[in-house]
């Protein structure tokens, strides 16, 4: 009973360790798996565990968005590409030098070490101050997005539009080295299609 009580009191902490461990395992798998498909699946594991952590951090809406956007869109996109390109499991080409591997590990460790003071100096516990029940709800996030952060939010739409156009242009099938896409030409083509055809057989 006491054990149960302790467990229930410690449940968020236990969940943190559980999903933090899962996400790390997934990340290590992304790093080590040869097969891109395996890596992608490990990525899903990581992304979903992080979503759980978001719930622990009372970011409910973000957690949902994480699942939908990452697991539902980005990783699926990765998998589509993998299947589209029909990549073999084996990576082509020679191995990286061991020396370079050591160097890379050293740099990554250096980044971690430089960030450590920030970690070590941080308070142990999540603050005990009572949190507003609406914290992290879709309504609150929505109010912020369409209120205080309206301009960045609208700018995001432009970013996405640009990314969309870039994606379409880059992945278009008939890319030839000599022909570059020019929006002015495209508009002119649309407007003067008949004339141009007449002039150039």
């Amino acid at each position: 009973m006491i054990i149960l009580q302790t467990l229930s009191a410690r449940l968020p902490d236990i969940l943190f360790y559980l999903f933090a461990g899962l996400s790390l395992i997934g990340a290590v798998q992304v790093l080590c798996r040869r097969n891109p498909m395996n890596a992608a699946v490990s990525m899903v594991v990581t992304v979903l565990s992080i979503a759980v952590l978001y719930i622990l951090l009372s970011a409910y809406f973000i957690a949902a968005a994480q699942m939908i956007v990452y697991a539902g869109a980005i990783v699926v996109l990765f998998i589509f590409v993998i299947m589209l390109l029909n990549l073999s499991a084996k990576e082509i080409g020679r191995r990286r030098y061991t020396l370079f591997k050591a160097f890379a590990a050293f740099v990554a460790a250096a980044v971690g070490v430089s960030l450590l003071p920030g970690v070590r100096g941080a308070p142990r516990a999540i603050s005990e101050q009572p949190i507003d029940p609406s914290f992290g709800s879709a309504k609150t996030v929505g109010r912020l997005l369409f209120g205080e952060f309206l301009l960045p939010f609208e700018l995001t739409s432009i970013l996405i539009l640009a990314a969309m156009v870039a994606g379409v242009v880059l992945a278009k099938r008939d890319i030839t080295p000599n022909r570059t896409f020019s929006p002015v030409d495209a508009i002119l083509d649309l407007l003067l299609k008949s004339d141009r055809k007449d002039k150039s057989p």
Binding site: S114, P117, G118, A122, P123, Q129
Partner: peptide, 23 residues
């Protein structure tokens, strides 16, 4: 790698990472 080395150098030039302030 070079990029990260640059980031590290900048980070240290600016005095490193500081712990977050208490609320």
């Amino acid at each position: 790698v070079w990029f990260l080395i640059g980031v590290l150098a900048l980070l240290h030039a600016m005095g490193g990472v500081h712990p977050p302030p208490a609320p």
